[in-house]
Amino acid sequence: MTKYGKNTVRETKVSRRDLLKGAALSAAAAALPAADAKASVWEAFFQRHFQELNAREMEKVISRLEMEYAEKYGKEIKISTTKPLPGVLFGYGLDISRCIGCRRCVYACVEENNQSRDPQIHWITVLRFKKGDKWVSDMESADKYYNPDKVPEPGYFYMPTQCQQCENPPCVKVCPTQATWSEDDGIVVVDYNWCIGCRYCMAACPYGARHFNWMKPGLPAEEINTKTHYLGNRPRYSGVVEKCTFCIQRTRNEKGPYPACVEICPVGARKFGNLLDPKSEIRYCIENKRIFRLKEDLNTHPKFFYFFAT
């Protein structure tokens, strides 16, 4: 609630900002031949922060973006802007004793969330550890490029990592433009139209969960997932940071489906639910299983719980 409450405070500033913007816009318009400058280019340039848009502006932005995408990919892409559900705080569980490291989740995520195929961006990284080695906080012993014929390999265990959706996210703290923030349902999101690409958040993330579009994302139009969310899986731009959003476009519904990685997991190692609902399976995990969170000592309080069901 607070996040959206902030908007009302900001409204007062908007008038002044509009003034400045108007001045800048007119100056720019005067400087450039009007015929050359496409209106949408300037609109995109001066698009405001997602949280500052009012309903009317939001509608305009969405229709512009949908038009842009339709032009670019030749496909109708729906962008939703669903707000967080009240009384929901998402949590994620991952059963390390079950994961076999088959990487089905990695590619399900790529397809669901329109990640760049070339250059490759994976939101999920599966790490392989040697059993009997010095446990997962010694990350150097991890290998993410393992490629055997069959998994699980004897003597190894696997630990997938992705955005841990921290309660106290270091990436949000450091962002100089507030382009990334934590939503009320606990999902840390990025406004791809506000990020300046300074990559400070990537340096701050202890989980290597943030990924940068080093060039224009290579997203084949035929493989695109057209059901998107503004803060989630809509196609990204070159030079912005992106990350896992717990499939915000799927899960932000009263009866929404599980995230793509949970659905695909062949061994059922991945669990997902509402932390505020005492009946949810994630709460069952936390209350009945031995759990740990990655890099607990950094006090980031992830909402991503690793557990042992055995």
């Binding site: 390390i96 004793s97 059993k131 009997g132 010095k134 446990w135 010694d138 003597g155 042992f308």
Partner: peptide, 17 residues
């Protein structure tokens, strides 16, 4: 067991092994 189970140690970040 150590080679086959997912064993852990206390305060692994100290590398006391």
């Amino acid at each position: 067991l150590i080679e086959e189970e997912r064993t852990g140690v206390l305060q692994p970040q100290l590398l006391t092994k």
